[in-house]
């Protein structure tokens, strides 16, 4: 069973923006990275899945439960971390935690205590006196404390210092190791690259690709470096080449697309050296966006 399965799911605002016809299957036990810049529809999709917004079309199931008709039940098995900590700031961290656990009917507080210790969370102070990073730690604790089957994390490390970001990444890996599913929206691509098995990229409300991180990096964009024995060809005319840097007989560029036409264009010009490397995820991500804005 997939932890999350969306079929043609849409939520459109009155201005026509939102998310459109999203098809997605997140497998149980995987860490899924959900990428897109601000305004692409990441948060709208998450809010629709969690029942804060109603689908305008399509359907979805989370943990086997219908997102429109069984949303309350599905929220029992979900831990949600919003992009901005939205807890009761007139209460202490402990009071916020106690409230969330009481509503969830969780009596055993041992996991919450262990997590609080590990995240070094100050639970005694009122939220309004805490920094954004410390509020975020309380939010992470509340999202994890009831041991959810599915974690939905919206920009999870915003506000966390680098050490705590590492601690958080360890936590995510551990949750995955325990068979939990993590759905993580982010525009911190390095973090997604490190943690996610697969990523989905959303652009203007539409899911433009869903693929394994490694496969995406291998097939989508390449870093190419080449040196010619004599005059180099006119690389500017080759489709798919961008960020071209020329230095005498040497050329460096990123390439988007099928390698065959590129190799054809390079052949016959006396290649002295050729290196083709996988780029970081950021370059892959950018390629989808430049394609969408007509720059590719």
């Amino acid at each position: 069973m997939n932890a999350m399965e969306l079929k043609q799911l849409s939520h459109l605002y009155k201005n026509g923006r939102g998310v459109r016809e999203v098809d997605l299957a997140v497998e149980t036990g995987e860490v899924f990275g959900f990428l897109g810049p601000n305004g692409a529809g990441k948060t709208t999709l998450i809010r629709t899945v969690l029942g804060l917004l109603r689908p305008t079309a399509g359907e979805g199931r989370v943990l086997g439960l219908d997102i429109a008709r069984q949303n309350r039940e599905l929220r029992r098995g979900v831990g949600y971390l919003p992009s901005d900590p939205a807890l009761y700031d007139f209460l202490t961290g402990q009071q916020n935690l106690d409230f969330a656990l009481a509503v969830r009917g969780v009596r055993d507080r041992s996991r919450a205590r262990a997590l609080a210790e590990r995240l070094d969370v100050d639970l005694k102070r009122r939220l309004k006196t805490l920094s954004r990073g410390n509020k975020q730690k309380v939010s992470i604790l509340i999202a994890l404390a009831h041991d959810p089957e599915l974690l939905i994390l919206d920009e999870p490390t915003s506000g966390l210092d680098p050490l705590m970001q590492e601690a958080f990444q360890d936590l995510v890996r551990e949750e995955q190791g325990r068979g939990k599913t993590v759905f993580m929206s982010s525009h911190v691509l390095g973090e997604v690259e490190v943690l996610a098995d697969r990523v989905g990229i959303i652009r203007d409300g539409r899911m433009v690709t869903v693929d394994h991180v490694d496969h995406l990096k291998k097939t989508r964009v390449k870093y190419v470096s080449c040196e010619f024995k004599s005059d180099r060809p006119d690389l500017e005319k080759v489709a798919g080449i961008r960020n071209l840097s020329l230095d005498g007989r040497k050329a460096q560029f990123t390439f988007v697309g099928d390698l065959d036409p590129l190799l054809g264009a390079l052949a016959g010009h006396g290649l002295a050296d050729l290196t083709v490397a996988d780029p970081p995820l950021e370059e892959v991500f950018r390629s989808f966006y430049e394609e969408g804005s007509g720059q590719a």
């Binding site: 804060l52 939205a86 969330a100 509503v103």
Partner: peptide, 14 residues
């Protein structure tokens, strides 16, 4: 208004 509805309504409340 203060966004705590997000916290409240993503808990399993009816």
């Amino acid at each position: 208004d203060r966004s705590t509805a997000d916290f409240l309504l993503t808990l399993p409340v009816d």
